[in-house]
Design a protein around this nucleic acid. Sequence first.
RNA 1: GCGGCCAUAGCUCAACUGGUUAGAGCGCCGGACUGUGACUCCGGAGGUUGCCGGUUCGAUCCCGGUUGGCCGCCCCA
Length: 425
Amino acid sequence: MSQKVAGVKGMNDLLPGEIEIWQHVEAQARELFGRFGYGEIRTPMVEDTALFVRSVGEETDIVGKEMYTFNDKADRSLSLRPEGTAPAARAYIEHSIANQEPLTRWFYAGPMFRYERMKTGRYRQFYQIGAEAYGAKEGAQDVEMMDMVVQFLERLGLKDITLNINSLGDEVCRPTYHAKLVEYLQAHREALCGDCQKRMEKNPLRVLDCKNEKCQAIAAAGPNVLESLCEPCRAHFDDVQRKLTALGVRHVVNPRMVRGLDYYTRTVFEFIASHPALGTASTVGAGGRYDKLVKSLGGPDAPAVGFACGLDRLVLLLKESGQQFTVRPDVFVAVADAGSHDAALVLASRLRREGLRVEFDTRGGSLKSQMKRADKSSAEFTLVLGEAERTSGQAKLKPMAGGEPIPVALDEVARVVRERKVVSA
RNA sequence: GCGGCCAUAGCUCAACUGGUUAGAGCGCCGGACUGUGACUCCGGAGGUUGCCGGUUCGAUCCCGGUUGGCCGCCCCA
């Protein structure tokens, strides 16, 4: 026997039974984001490696350790996209969108790739639904976006998700805060954990959300980002909070929340689920403002804000919620005698053209076995077609949940099924 | 990348301190009314115990490696 084939570690197949949940989440996002005026974009899954190096940051683990990078046949360095903001910004720049409209709202949904240690809610090919808004520096844009995520999660029926917000400042106040923080951390160097001693050099902000208790205590007593904001950033953040409150969006200000990607400025936010099934993969959505990114990639000086939700994690939560998403067939067409098989195939075809979801066992088989299949298929009704029905043009729709069979003319099936469904729904 | 746990049928799990043909429930297929599912009963298929090697008369069980999954760290949606 041959060696059995196997999929790639960290990359999963989605099959019927589970895919319906994914389709539901995506459908909800598309519908809702459309209401907010966001248009869908689809960019390639592969980009020039330099795009991510310049945007996400060469020093980040995402770019430095986790990207799937390879050279194509012309020896160009390409990478599977590890996130969606940079590709969207690239498209925004490449198509000169800023010259065509002052405010642009886009969303995307698709796979991202990071070579990470696998665990629940963390995969090497994972899926994000995200949005980007270009052209508005106003806090109203940040708030609109957070509101959109809140409504999205509401529609999915997900509870116990907390919105955390913070501001990281801009090119004026961030360096100042950065310096103050490093100076403070230097003074407490000895008390920090080993990881934090390294973070201090590479990415001092990361000390703020270290899980080590001692580090947390030191961080809590140190300089606070929000107190170090320059006046414009302070005003911007106040505006964001005021508007969130006006919309009734519940949120928590967390001055120690930071971001892994280098391009963020000012507002950052994170949606954190408390459900234990997610474990440490509790962040279901995250985003923030990146006013300098577009320009740094050679585009116009366009302020922007965006977010991404981890689709895998939302699906995990929906599975836990026990909601059902499978769609049931309307009718199962069963054949009573071999001579009626062709007629049944024709009937099934016609009913499908008329809009019904129809199951039909192309293999034929005993009526009994077909009835069992009808039951397994969870069809609403079963219609048995045999010589008698073909001769009379009359059949019966048997409600699989129980109840009296409904007499129906063969050319009235679709209409009757629709009527009965409306009544039962 | 670091530390720890786990691996038996499609799924959830058994198998007395290594001992003959590795079991059950669910699921799947068929039958118990030759035009009717579900509940019940009967029967069947399905495993070289993840893979490779070692110790042993003998390994699902002990040891090493490997692959995959899970937990914490790192990182992060």
